[in-house]
Structure formats: C-alpha cells, structure tokens
Design a protein around this nucleic acid. Sequence first.
DNA 1: ACATTAATTATGT
DNA 2: ACATAATTAATGT
Length: 242
Amino acid sequence: MQNAVMTRSRTAPRLDESLLNNVPPFSKLDSRQIREILDLASSRRYDEGVAVFEEGHDADRFYMLLDGYIRVVRITPGGEQVIALHIPSGQLFGIARALGRTTYPATAITAAESIALSWPTRLWDQFTAHYDGFATETYKTVGTRVGEMNTRIMEMATQQVEQRIANALLRLINQTGRKVATGIEIDFPITRQDLSEMTGTTLHTVSRTLSAWEKQGLVASGRKRITVSDPHQLVLLANAAR
DNA sequence: ACATTAATTATGT
DNA sequence: ACATAATTAATGT
C-alpha cells in the first residue's frame, strides 16, 4: 500500500524507476538499465483471489510483485489444494526459467489485491546475461524458497499439528506481518481453511487450536484476520518436544 | 492424536 | 437475505 502505482492495466503511462531500484534482483543496476527493463515490462493490477498463472501452463511470462501478496498453490490429483508458500511484494515469481522449466510448476493466486510487472520469458536469458546481480539475486530467492519448502517437509514428517500451525503462523508474520498495537497481524485475508492447507490438517483443527490460543492470549483473530500478540510463546510452542 | 460429521452461529455484502 | 467463515460437540480411526 506504500507503492503508488497507477492501477491502469496495459497502457500505463510511464513506470517510475523507483519501483525497481531498491528491489534485490535489480538493486545493482544503474538508472539507464532500469529504464530499459521497465520499458519492456507490462504492469497489471489483480483483484484478490484471481490466478495470475496456472500450474502446467506454458510459462510465457515471468513476474515481479510490486504490491500485494501471492499464494503459490498446487492441486492434488484428488482435487485438494495445498498451499506451498506465500510471496510478498518485491519478489520475482513465475520464474519457471530459473528452474529449467517451460511450464509453471504451480498456480499463483493473489492473496490480496496486487500489482505485478511481467516480462516475456524469452527475455530471461538476456536479463541474466546482461544485468549485473540479477542472476545471483534470483537464485538466492530460489534458494530460500526451496529451503522453506524443505523445512516444511521436515515439519510435516516430524511435528504434530499444533506445532505445524505455530510454525506456519510464525513464517507468515515474519514474511508478511504488519505491526499493530496488539501485536503482529498477517497483512492479507487468511482463513482457517487456508491455514489448514498450509499445514496439512483440517480447518476444524485449526479453528480449535486458534480458539485455544486465543483464550491464552496468544493470538487474536476474527474473520479472515489473525494477529499474533505473543510471538515468543508461539516460538516456544513451535519447538516444544512433546 | 487427530479426522470426520454434523449442527449452529457469526459475519460481510 | 444470502453465501461464506468460524465455532463447537460428538463420534470415529
């Protein structure tokens, strides 16, 4: 919400250079290079809950999230959704090319109203070749994402539900948290169903544990809103060896 | 230790 | 008024 971008879609006037020059993959570039990149980009606004691209489709573009949040989602053969991770603004997504793929490995849904830049995938190789720091920075973010999914797999295998929910909440407030008077609030609408899809459990179990935590003053939640008022206690819960 | 089922209530447009 | 979200208890594996 701090990013002031005209929310017109395709024929946006002129993109401001300040959009990119403090964003990691582009931070090492001079203003001439950023100008080049921006002139090749399309800017678009997305409503909440819409797919930017879908799993299995041809990866014809890659994206840079300017504002909002992206939910990376996969669908099981049985039709159940699994939320892989959330992406905050300032990060690239849909970078199938960086994974050596020609199709998108997952679906990207906006978790809130969002604005993203995008480029045709055929420019990817030029970007990595010509723009200093672009390749190393993007592989860094790829690395952290793989790492996150890795620890999630470990959690799934070893921890019980309560700890997994605690860990999921902690990641959310770290990556997408917003400080408020009563604690740290998750910056986009999130349901118990969503949390259950991130932790491999049911919305009922999530509801119960959140209710229990609420009574202990650990969290406060309403419809689609969760604020963590006592992160420290959550950390303790998250690695409690039962 | 958790899911499932089911019934009930709350909340946003 | 209606749909979606959340709660809660009971029952099952």
